[in-house]
């Protein structure tokens, strides 16, 4: 019964969570104060016999107080967020040693091109997978997102990363997994009839486990897509999905 934010599995995920919890506490406190105050006012100043309302038109000091306090809070939040935002999205802050991964999205599947043992993309030993991404824990990765048809969105909840994939543009996003295991990768932007069944899985291995997996891929020359098609969900689809 896991009903909260999935455990963080990426380097900057902790910062994102920290800002989330700061905002949660501030807004939680303001929520209690405002709604509590509302309830108190409703009970205390409800209509009673012989009661008359106070003839007040406003109070400038109160206005100034509840203008500056929210302004200060939101400016502080903005500065806080800007630091994390630039580490995640600003190309200047991308780690130099990031391993490039080609992510090509088309309507209703993810195509990953992972560099083979030589560590470079576009060479013959690249490993091509559909809806399966294999990474090493603790290494920086830079995904080069390209789309073939419509806008999709590269979303890994555990890594707190979301980046729309816009056709006609190559957008780079980076992350560093810090936990091993299998994490879900989803499409977060409505991309047509099969938007709901575009899930993929990110396997984060330890270094030697990854090496074993990499050699186990047989002759590295097979650039053709290996037909381990795990797209269809386990549940039998009652009806074939729409017109696609």
């Amino acid at each position: 019964m896991h009903w909260w934010i999935p455990t963080n599995a990426s380097s900057y995920g902790g910062d994102v969570d920290r800002i989330f919890y700061i905002i949660l506490y501030i807004t939680g406190f303001v929520f209690l104060v405002v709604e509590g105050g509302l309830l108190v006012f409703l009970v205390r100043y409800r209509r009673r016999e012989g009661r008359t309302a106070a003839y007040i038109h406003g109070n400038n000091t109160a206005e100034i107080i509840w203008t500056t306090i929210p302004a200060v809070i939101v400016v502080m939040l903005a500065l806080l967020s800007q630091k994390v935002w630039s580490t995640v999205k600003d190309p200047a802050h991308f780690p130099a040693d990031a391993i490039p991964i080609g992510v090509h999205v088309k309507q209703f599947e993810w195509q990953f091109t992972m560099p083979g043992p030589d560590g470079k993309l576009g060479t013959d030993d690249d490993i091509f997978r559909k809806n399966e991404l294999h990474l090493v824990v603790g290494r920086n990765y830079a995904v080069q997102l390209t789309s073939q048809d419509v806008i999709h969105s590269f979303f890994i909840p555990a890594f707190r990363l979301k980046q729309d994939v816009v056709p006609g543009m190559t957008i780079v996003a980076w992350f560093r997994p810090i936990l091993t295991g299998a994490f879900d990768l989803a499409c977060a932007q409505l991309c047509g009839v099969g938007h709901y069944r575009m899930q993929a899985t990110v396997y984060v291995h330890s270094a030697e486990d990854f090496a074993r997996w990499q050699t186990a891929q047989g002759a590295p020359a097979t650039a053709a897509p290996v037909a381990t098609d795990t797209t269809m969900g386990s549940m039998a689809m009652p009806h074939s999905g729409g017109t696609r």
């Binding site: 994102v16 949660l24 929520f31 903005a78 806080l80 994390v84 995640v88 707190r160 979301k162 977060a188």
Partner: peptide
Amino acid sequence: LSMFVIGGLSGIFMAATPVDMYIHD
């Protein structure tokens, strides 16, 4: 008034770009 306060406060989560990166869409 009571519901708009909740709506307004949840808007602040989206204004913070890193948090919006997670909760967008």
